[in-house]
Design a protein around this nucleic acid. Structure first.
Lengths: 115, 115
DNA sequence: CTGGATCCCTATCGATACTG
DNA sequence: CAGTATCGATAGGGATCCAG
């Protein structure tokens, strides 16, 4: 079993899983939704408010995809009315952590402006 | 000027640039193309051969997008016949380096099989 | 509040054929 | 070799309305 960490040495299988991961969270809104949840937006409407431009339909769809990918868990709280909360899974939180160098990359190469 | 590295502390502007980056390389084939170039496939046809399933049309389109994003440079060598070679820019290579933790994430959470 | 169902439009895709 | 042009099919997207 040989696993590689550097891009240059990826074998075909690793490359495919790498691109699959990137393409999953690269889908429109996915990354924004994950970041929103990480920033403590756990309710459906909270996420919708944080990620501007995102429609209810797409939010529901993306949440389902992220749940299937086991990056997010959906928790139903049987209160009245029923509450639904979304959380990052361990792997979801870990993926965001793994993406942090990309943020630094953005600071290095896409400085533009700073709010 | 306050820049943040952790996902939780991203401000709106940083979050948008982060998602824009992720969505760019998350477009279908983009990551695969970048990896192929990193792995020494510099000719158009070489890249097409390495990334299986990718059509000429999409390859040309993605290369243009990646060039516009300054992740890739197109070099035209005036030989006969003309040669065209694609290379990663500094920022492109740096972005791939920044993505390496995502590969490790794949090993941790998407082990499946190893070729 | 949290979505599902529909409608309709546009973007994107893959295949094929063609060119300097 | 390195693309471009065109086309028909499909997927993705926004808006709106509706429901538990």
């Amino acid at each position: 079993m040989t696993t590689h960490t550097s891009i240059q040495h990826l074998n075909d299988d690793e490359r495919e899983r790498f691109t699959a991961t990137v393409e999953l969270i690269g889908k429109r809104w996915s990354a924004g939704i994950l970041v929103a949840i990480a920033k403590d937006a756990h309710r459906f409407s909270e996420i919708a408010n944080v990620v501007s431009g995102l429609s209810d339909r797409l939010l529901a769809q993306r949440l389902r995809e992220l749940e299937i990918a086991e990056l997010v868990v959906r928790e139903v709280i049987p209160s009245t009315p029923v509450q639904v909360r979304y959380h990052l899974t361990e792997s979801g939180a870990d993926l965001l952590r793994a993406m942090e160098p990309v943020i630094e990359w953005g600071h290095r190469w896409r400085p533009e402006r700073d709010a």
